[in-house]
Design a protein around this nucleic acid. Structure first.
Lengths: 185, 185
DNA sequence: TATTGTTATACTCTATAACTATA
DNA sequence: TATAGTTATAGAGTATAACAATA
């Protein structure tokens, strides 16, 4: 046997907290004498969190991104790759650094992203001068983007179904206003 | 001199892409003969991105989180820590694993988060039985949370200023509906 | 056997510093 | 000197596997 025999749980916790060794009594607790209430799984409420914009934004963003990944796994495009393809198509020949800036991605992190897309034959770097590149979609890149856009529009339609008539449009407007209002703050 | 003398840019790019060495002509380009148009910084458009919910959600979430970090740096509370304190206060004695689940954080990653809060003396682990802990706020934790909540409500007020009368409430409702609609999909 | 907490690990995303080549 | 791209690196956040102690 490798295990050093019944070592109480509290011992493990010593090295973690502040410094107070917290000599807890080793006596066995009554082993939870609950009855019907004991089986309720996790009645943990969220408090005021659902009234905070930041929290709800995070939850919604996670849900939408999961939805995106679920539908785009066949195409194998991550959100950042998708938006890059889209911007390059809308701005053929744009400088690598300008595309990165438009996406809010740092140039230093954009290198690997473009490397992947270039390795997959979706994007091409063409020299503008001897120190900068202009980005272009390949034929494969355009084809894949077309597929991705089709899926994306299907998702947007499903959001309209969830949010009702002009709900999606209202959401987009509110998000744009909020972002714009905070950027200049 | 350590540098091996004028090595053309293209050489570096060789090891990166597919495999095609792309023997570009080494002749010097005309050095950009643009005139007035050359000084425009980055006329790179976003294409259809602003019409996609996922993209606008990401942008808004980044803006709001930056705003949060800017205002909470005095208190030194990250979003995850803030929401943890809030949930623990709303559910005193709740099991560590249940709090993690309520927040959508994996138990395995929640350990370090609680360790930090405990080390700072904001949260306390109290043994429920010999394998599980109930979480509680300390007096310091309650005091810090109170400060954080005050700041948070100021931020929410600023969001109302940006989004207009019931704009913030509408946004919260739309986000909740979207999240709920996607979770059961 | 199932649950709870934990460690170790890895992968993505993001951020900073330093460097090379070029404008 | 300033700019474009790059490398190396480090920090968060998140995911899985394996484990020990306990229910």
């Amino acid at each position: 046997m490798k295990t050093p025999a019944t070592r109480p749980r509290a011992e493990r916790a010593v090295k973690r907290a502040t410094g107070k060794t917290s000599n807890r009594p080793a006596k066995k607790l009554p082993a939870a004498p609950q009855d019907a209430l004991a089986l309720a799984p996790a009645p943990v409420g969220l408090g005021a969190l659902p009234d905070f914009v930041g929290y709800m934004l995070r939850r919604a963003q996670i849900a939408v991104f999961d939805d995106f990944m679920r539908h785009s796994k066949a195409i194998d495009l991550r959100p950042g790759q998708f938006s890059t393809l889209l911007i390059v198509e809308a701005n053929p020949g744009a400088k690598q650094s300008d595309v990165a800036a438009a996406l809010g991605i740092q140039g230093t992190n954009f290198v690997a992203l473009i490397n992947q897309l270039e390795k997959r034959g979706l994007v091409e770097r063409r020299a503008l001068d001897r120190r900068s590149y202009g980005l272009h979609l390949t034929a494969d890149g355009r084809a894949l983007l077309k597929q991705a856009l089709k899926q994306q529009e299907a998702q947007e339609t499903s959001y309209e179904a969830i949010l009702g008539e002009g709900g999606r449009r209202t959401l987009l407007d509110l998000l744009a206003r909020l972002t714009k209002g905070l950027e200049k703050a």
